[in-house]
Design a protein around this nucleic acid. Structure first.
Length: 602
RNA sequence: UGCCUGGUGGUGUAAUGGUAGCACAGCAGAUUCUGACUCUGCUUGUCUAGGUUCGAGUCCUAGCCGGGCAGCCA
C-alpha cells in the first residue's frame, strides 16, 4: 500500500454556491442537453493556485452534472505565448483533476478544426468532441488533444465577414494613440472614428486585404460598431482584430491578423457548445460585449452565458502571472516550479497532494466578494491530508551526537516503528538502535528554559520507538563546542519490555549514526514577509530572505528508496517529499512541504 | 463627477422574511512513546440611518466604505 492511495479523492463536502445554484436551476429547467464548461488559460505562464480555484469550479460543475469541461488554450496573442506553457498547463490540469474529474475532461481529435454545417437552415460550424467515456483509450494513442482558440481562426474570420455584412463591424485606420483618444474616459463619452461609416463593400475589401497581409502591424483594425458614448467603455467600438505579422505557436504561419479576447472568447465558447462560461470578476464589464457579439450573428444553436466570481487571494502569496514571471526572471526563485512558488507545479514539487489543493480551493467558496484567505486555512488542510496519509520516518535535520555508553559498539538493537498511527491497522518497520545515535540539536539544552521537556543535564528523555536515556556527561572540545553527549540507555523501558510504560515528559526522534543516509534537506518558508505582497509598491522588496534554508540531514535508511510522489512525516518536524528535479540516488534531496503545528515554539 | 459590483466574528463562508450556524485562527484545559493528531470548554459578527412587517442579515430608501473598468493583453 502506498501512502498516496489512501488520500481522499474528492473535495468534501459537496459544494454549493451561487453559480452552482444557477446551473442546478438550468438543469431543472432542462435548458441544455448537457452542461459544458471550460477552463481557458492563456499559454503565457504557468498555472497557479488561483487557477486551481477556477479548475475546481469548472470541472466540479461538470462532474456534478454529468457534464463536460474543456481545457481550452486561449491562444489569440502569439507574441506572448509559447508551447512550453501549453505543455506545463496540460500536465498541471491532468495532475490536479486525476481521479476526481478526469472523466469529464473534454478532448477533440488531434488537429481537428470546426467544419461548416447547417443547423436549423442556418450556416454553422461543428467541432466534433471526443466522447469523454472514450478518452482513456485515446489518451495513450496520442490521438486527442485539448482545445485551442487558434483552431477556430478560420470560422472566426468568417464570422467577422458576417458582422461586416450586417453593418456591425468596420475597418478602422486610427493609430493606437488616436484610438485611445477617441475612446474617451469612463466619465467622458468617446467620439466616433472618422472611418466608422465606410461602406460594407469597402470594409469587406479592406478586411480581406488585412488578412492577405497587405498592411503593416498596427495600420488597421477591425472594430465592432456599437456606441462610442456608452457608459461602458468596452462597448465603445471595441477592437476585434489586429494585424501582427508573426507566426503562431499552434496555428502556424497562415495568419497575420489575430482576434482579440472579447471577440474570440464568446465565439470559442459557442463553437464548443459551452453552456456556462465562468470567469473572474474583472470580466463582468465585458459581459455586455460577450452577449452583443453572439446576438449580432443570429446563431442557430443555444448561446453560452458568462458568469463571474471573485478570484482567490491567499495571504503571503502572489496570484499574478506577471509578478510570478518577474520572480522567475529576477532569479528570486529557481523557476516557475520552485517549491516556494504558488504555481501548481511548484506546489506539486513542494509535496502538496492534489486532493488537498482541491479541497482547499473548494473550501474557500465561490462568491462575488473580494477576500484574502489566511494561509492557515491552506496549511490546515494540507496537514490534515498528510497526517492521514504520510508514513512516519525518523530524520535529524541538525544532528548532535549521543553516545549510549552501556551499549557495546557494533551491537544493533532492532526496534519496531509505526508507519502511520492514523491507519486502522498500522504497519511497522524496523529501525536500528546503536551505541552512537544522532538527535536534533534543538532537543538538547545545556541551560533549559522553563517547561523544557527534552534532554537536559541529568535529565531523561525517551528515544521514540526505543528506550529512555539519561544524560550523564557533556563532552566539549578545546573551543568549548559540544562534541557529544554521553548517556545511559535504560533498555528495560524498550517497547514490549517490563518498564516500557514508564513515563518521561519528553519523547524525541533520533537516527543511528552508523545505519543512516545523508540527504540535502530544503526547508522552505513563506516567500513574502507581508500578508499582501501584491499591495506593495515593490513586491520584490518584501521577499522573505529566509524563505529557504538548506541543511545536511541524517535519515533512517528506509528513506533512501523514497520516490517523488510519496509523502513522509519526519517525526516531530513536518512533512517532506523527495525533490522531483534535483534528487539523485547518490545525493538525496528532500523538500519540506510544511512543518508540524508547533504550539510550544510559538 | 461615469458605469459595473460587493459589504455577516480576526479570516473565509452559511442562513433564499422566522433560534445568526460552520470552518480556520485565538484563549483555557484533558490526553499523548510526535509539545503532532484527538477531545472538551470559551471569546468574538449582520457597514450606518431611516422605512415596510407580528417578525429584517434577508425587502425598500438614503448614505458610508471597498473592489473592478479607459491594452491593438487575457
Amino acid at each position: 500500500m502506498s501512502a498516496e492511495n489512501t488520500s481522499p479523492a474528492t473535495p468534501t463536502p459537496a459544494p454549493s454556491d451561487f453559480i452552482r445554484d444557477l446551473v442546478a436551476q438550468h438543469v431543472a429547467e432542462q435548458r441544455y442537453a448537457k452542461i459544458v464548461t471550460r477552463f481557458p488559460p492563456e499559454p503565457n505562464g504557468y498555472l497557479h493556485i488561483g487557477h486551481a480555484k477556477s479548475i475546481c469550479l469548472n470541472f466540479g460543475i461538470a462532474r456534478e452534472n454529468s457534464g463536460q469541461c474543456n481545457l481550452r488554450f486561449d491562444d489569440t496573442n502569439p507574441v506572448k505565448e509559447d508551447v512550453e506553457y501549453v505543455d506545463s498547463i496540460t500536465t498541471d490540469v491532468k495532475w490536479l483533476i486525476d481521479g476526481w474529474a478526469d472523466h469529464c475532461l473534454g478532448f477533440k481529435a488531434k488537429g481537428a478544426t470546426p467544419a461548416p454545417q447547417t443547423v436549423n437552415g442556418k450556416p454553422d460550424f461543428h467541432l466534433p468532441a471526443v466522447d469523454p467515456a472514450q478518452i482513456k483509450s485515446h489518451l495513450s494513442g496520442d490521438k486527442v488533444e485539448p482545445f485551442f482558440a487558434s483552431d477556430y481562426f478560420a470560422p472566426l474570420y468568417d464570422y467577422a465577414l458576417e458582422l461586416i455584412k450586417r453593418g456591425k463591424a468596420y475597418v478602422c485606420d486610427l493609430t493606437p494613440k488616436e484610438t485611445d483618444e477617441y475612446r474617451g474616459a469612463p466619465d467622458k463619452p468617446g467620439r466616433n472614428s472618422p472611418y466608422r461609416d465606410r461602406s460594407i463593400e469597402e470594409n469587406l475589401d479592406l478586411f480581406k486585404r488585412m488578412r492577405a497581409g497587405e498592411f503593416p502591424d498596427g495600420a488597421r483594425t477591425l472594430r465592432a460598431k456599437i456606441d462610442m458614448a456608452s457608459p461602458n467603455v468596452w462597448l465603445r467600438d471595441p477592437l476585434l482584430y489586429r494585424i501582427r505579422h508573426v507566426a503562431h505557436h499552434h496555428a502556424g504561419s497562415g495568419w497575420c491578423i489575430y482576434p482579440l479576447y472579447d471577440y474570440a472568447h464568446c465565439l470559442s465558447d459557442y463553437l464548443e457548445g459551452i453552456t456556462h462560461s465562468v470567469c473572474t470578476l474583472e470580466f463582468e464589464v465585458h459581459r455586455p460585449l460577450y452577449d452583443w457579439i453572439l446576438e449580432s450573428l443570429d446563431l442557430p444553436r443555444p448561446l453560452p452565458h458568462q458568469y463571474e466570481f471573485a478570484k482567490l487571494n491567499l495571504a503571503y502569496t502572489l496570484v499574478s502571472k506577471r509578478k510570478l514571471l518577474t520572480l522567475v526572471n529576477e532569479k528570486v526563485v529557481t523557476g516557475w516550479d520552485d517549491p516556494r512558488m504558488p504555481t501548481i507545479s511548484g506546489l506539486r514539487r513542494r509535496g502538496i497532494p492534489a486532493p488537498a489543493l482541491l479541497e482547499f480551493v473548494a473550501s474557500v467558496g465561490v462568491t462575488k466578494a473580494d477576500s484574502v484567505t489566511e494561509a492557515a486555512v491552506f496549511e490546515n488542510i494540507v496537514r490534515n491530508h498528510l497526517n492521514a496519509t504520510a508514513f512516519r520516518r525518523l530524520a535529524v535535520l541538525k544532528p548532535i551526537k549521543i553516545v549510549l555508553t552501556n551499549i557495546p559498539a557494533g551491537e544493533v538493537i532492532l526496534c519496531d516503528a509505526t508507519n502511520n498511527p492514523q491507519d486502522e491497522t498500522p504497519t511497522t518497520r524496523k529501525v536500528s538502535l546503536t551505541r552512537e545515535v544522532f538527535i536534533e540539536s534543538d532537543d538538547f539544552a545545556e541551560v533549559p528554559p522553563p517547561k523544557y521537556f527534552r534532554l537536559k543535564p541529568g535529565g531523561e528523555v525517551r528515544l521514540k520507538y526505543a528506550c529512555i536515556i539519561k544524560l550523564d556527561e557533556i563532552v566539549k572540545d578545546a573551543s568549548g563546542a559540544i562534541t557529544e553527549l554521553r548517556c545511559t540507555a535504560d533498555l528495560t523501558t524498550r517497547t514490549g519490555q517490563p518498564n516500557s510504560d514508564r513515563k518521561v515528559k519528553g519523547t524525541i526522534h533520533w537516527v543511528s549514526a552508523v545505519r543512516c543516509v545523508d540527504a540535502e534537506v530544503r526547508l522552505y518558508d513563506r516567500l513574502f514577509t507581508v500578508p499582501e505582497p501584491a499591495a506593495e509598491e515593490d513586491f520584490l522588496k518584501v521577499v522573505n530572505p529566509k524563505s529557504l534554508e538548506v541543511v545536511t540531514a541524517k535519515l533512517e535508511v528506509a528513506l533512501g528508496t523514497a520516490t517523488p510522489n510519496e509523502h513522509f512525516q519526519f517525526e516531530r518536524l513536518g512533512y517532506f517529499t523527495l525533490d522531483s528535479k534535483d534528487s539523485r540516488p547518490d545525493h538525496l534531496v528532500f523538500n519540506r512541504t510544511i512543518t508540524l503545528r508547533d504550539t510550544w515554539a510559538k
